[in-house]
Write a protein that binds this DNA or RNA. Structure first.
Lengths: 246, 246
DNA sequence: ACTTAGTAATAACATACGCTAAGCAAGGCG
DNA sequence: CGCCTTGCTTAGCGTATGTTATTACTAAGT
């Protein structure tokens, strides 16, 4: 089903809006690209870089982050297959943050030139990609709310909830189970908590039966309950009702 | 200089990139719009709304925010003249947050139809507006970092720093002084702190001579010092060096 | 089989920040 | 002119979360 590495991207561009025309799909599938395998914990681009290409996640997980002066890091978002985490570099020449892998990845690299040509030939696609970057921003807004307003318990539940719902939208869940190869340290960097407190809170979440999480695989026995604990409202993901709802 | 209410917007679209063509400028200035006066603390659009127009701030300050289940609110961003705080509604039909005034405002309302027609006729303008929404997202990223990684003192200093730099970029500062009619409660909602702790921390910032802030006017005697306290790096604003630098 | 290194779990202690409450100043308004 | 509201300030106390450290577990490497 996903023989072409960009098929998942196409599927994403159609979420909660009209289907792409065949000509538009073809134009995307014909994009010149480089497929690359990248190990875990490698940077794709770094703060200060001036990229000349964009990255599409084909397989594996990535995150965007900023390094702090005191050596800490703030994770800004997680990325799953189908995402274009550095799409913004098309119009913001200098990276204001870094993009790296969390696990081994397969990525597709597409030059800015090819993307510019694509949206010149198919102007309607520009709006699709623009829309993607607006959803990106919507997720950032929710993360501000998450770190700014929720306690550790809800904050972690929220991150897990979002991860699950986004994975499900690209068909990467098996019922209530999904890959979650994220370390507690990474969760700490994403939520602005210490690793110790992440551990404490995760155990509470586990003890309350909201998640079963072992060796990189996570199951959500009762999604409604987890959502409630997380105060998770999927509207900010701007997916079609069927994808975002329980 | 700013006789047309959209002149400041045009100036913004040219920051850190090439100048607009005369035809592009004319197309923007000819946009059909409604000028409206709005009182302080009024909503422009609310979470759940499906707007049919976008708002340009002509005069006054606005903020975007989310209401929480427990009655609290998280402020997501501040907006100054020249901003289009709900530009995203052009492609995300349902608002995932609210937009409201902090002070009395003059706003220009432009229908989505007119904006779509504008970018159809002047496709290069689509990229300018797209770019604006990418900078918007960059600011959200910095706010995640702010609430996730900085202590109260730096967090507040950072918000003030950003406010000043953004105001200066649109010519709304007088040397080191600028309008800052934000209440401590609003600062608390923006930083995820309690009002009491905002008060404590602001007084420290004052005591250290980093700001002089009385009756809605703020002065920064030593911008370099404030930036350092805030760990403020203006790169995320993607302004031209001359605007962002000290 | 024995490291080595990453990750997770737990404990003891420290603190930045939240909460409740009360007083005070300044501006709007009858 | 006094009231009322809004915002700012200060105090006292509680707690969610941070810090440092130790131990155990697992997987990978030699």
């Amino acid at each position: 089903m996903f023989e072409n590495p960009l098929n998942r991207l196409i599927r994403r561009l159609e979420v909660d809006t009209t289907a792409l025309s065949q000509a538009e799909k073809d134009a995307i599938l014909r994009l010149p690209m480089t497929i690359k395998e990248v190990g875990a914990d490698q940077d794709i681009v770094r703060e200060g870089d001036r990229p000349t290409q964009c990255c599409v996640v084909v397989e594996g997980f990535q995150c965007r982050y900023k390094m702090l002066l005191d050596g800490g890091r703030q994770i800004l978002s997680f990325h799953v297959p189908g995402d274009m985490p550095d799409l913004q570099s098309l119009f913001l020449s200098t990276m204001d943050h870094s993009l790296g892998t969390l696990t081994p990845n397969r990525v597709a690299l597409i030059s800015h030139d090819a993307l510019r040509e694509l949206i010149r030939v198919q102007p309607a696609l520009a709006e699709r990609f623009w829309r993607e970057s607006l959803i990106d921003a919507a997720i950032f807004r929710e993360w501000i709310t998450n770190v700014g307003s929720r306690d550790a318990y809800a904050r972690l539940a929220h991150v897990i909830c979002e991860f699950y719902v986004r994975l499900r939208a690209v068909g990467l869940t098996k019922d209530a189970t999904f890959d979650f190869p994220i370390t507690q340290t990474e969760l700490a960097d994403a939520t602005g908590l210490s690793t110790v407190h992440v551990n404490r809170s995760i155990q509470q979440i586990r003890a309350n039966g909201l998640i079963i999480w072992e060796r990189g695989a996570c199951t959500i026995p009762n999604l409604a309950a987890l959502k409630e604990a997380a105060m998770f409202e999927p509207n900010y993901l701007h997916m079609r009702e069927g994808n975002a709802a329980a």
